[in-house]
Nucleic acid binder design. Structure first.
Lengths: 174, 174
DNA sequence: TCCTTCATGTAACCTGTTACATGATTCC
DNA sequence: GGAATCATGTAACAGGTTACATGAAGGA
């Protein structure tokens, strides 16, 4: 379901596009909130066309199909946003690892956490850069809130890793 | 893979247990980091037994099977924690929604965000309560770091929702 | 006796990833 | 001519959810 919604959102925000375009838009915009490969996107667009949420507006060279969102597609997006209670369940390898840290020796846990903190530093730099350079196709404001959220979350992971490392280090010295 | 690791972790932290026990442990401890139902846990334990990571220590009444982690299982857990680069990719309906907020009218977006903030307030209260009352089976320290992380993340979502609502509200009045 | 909890399992389905496969167009 | 990019698709597999199915034990 969410993939449909994401595609409808991208079509709304940036106008008609092919599956190929949408795959790239995914990478350059919504990537920190949701991911999808072309192998998932193409079949989904076909199903959405069958369901009347999008239409093939034009067929170009190399078999390119340009999809446009229909009125029904617009309603679907709106209904999802307004009526669907979002799942707030959270699943992350990082958190699972956090859970299992006490099964390791303190010095091992500290090393892992410090390495994680560095990885999140790098990710943070990427996201900050993204905030500066925005792709031309975006409608104004689109994706900014989600990017802000992504940056906050990455910063949180960095800080938590760093602080937990220090905490374990201190505790293990006593 | 992660499910295996979570199960090995729970067996390490709290000793031998049945699939039924592990299902409950999942709910009461690791839930905010990873979820699994009994329908996933039972077949996985059977596969793990076949792979020699756990053994059936004892068969009790009602067909109860008590699993114990083997040495090989311990090695598997340790190797995963130390050598496996954790996936840092993030996928959340909340973030997707955040992304799509600008497709709604400002007042609609504000209402959604405020409702989200309240939901996260409630979740936060649950997690804080969990921090106080710890199940008897936990070995000391186990799960504390992950719980701290969960609380921080929930607080972040609450704050982001609230602040973004205010921001949109202010902007729409100008 | 009946309800609840304990206890294990399977089947159908949905979502997502990786890999395979193909061919047109454009640029050097 | 050859490489890169554009463009679409399928198949196999892995992971997870929902629903179905069954039965024993214990307590009211």
């Amino acid at each position: 379901m969410s993939l449909r919604i994401a595609l409808l959102g991208l079509l709304t925000a940036a106008g008609p596009a092919s599956g190929y375009d949408l795959t790239k838009r995914f990478e350059s915009s919504i990537n920190h909130a949701w991911q999808a490969r072309h192998s998932q996107i193409y079949p989904e667009l076909n199903k959405m066309a069958a369901d009347g949420l999008v239409t093939v507006q034009e067929e170009g060279s190399r078999g390119r199909k340009t999809y446009t969102i229909t009125e029904e597609g617009g309603r679907e997006l709106r209904t999802w946003l307004i009526e669907k209670e979002p799942s707030r369940s959270y699943r992350s390898e990082g958190a699972l690892r956090a859970f299992l840290l006490p099964t390791l020796e303190p010095h091992e846990a500290v090393a892992l956490l410090r390495a994680e903190a560095r990885a999140y530093d790098a990710r943070l730099a990427e996201l900050e850069a993204l905030r500066m350079a925005k792709p031309s196709w975006k409608s104004p404001g689109f994706g900014e809130y989600a990017l802000d959220l992504g940056i906050r979350q990455t910063r949180l992971m960095r800080d938590w890793s760093e602080e937990t490392a220090t905490q374990i280090e201190t505790a293990s010295r006593s």
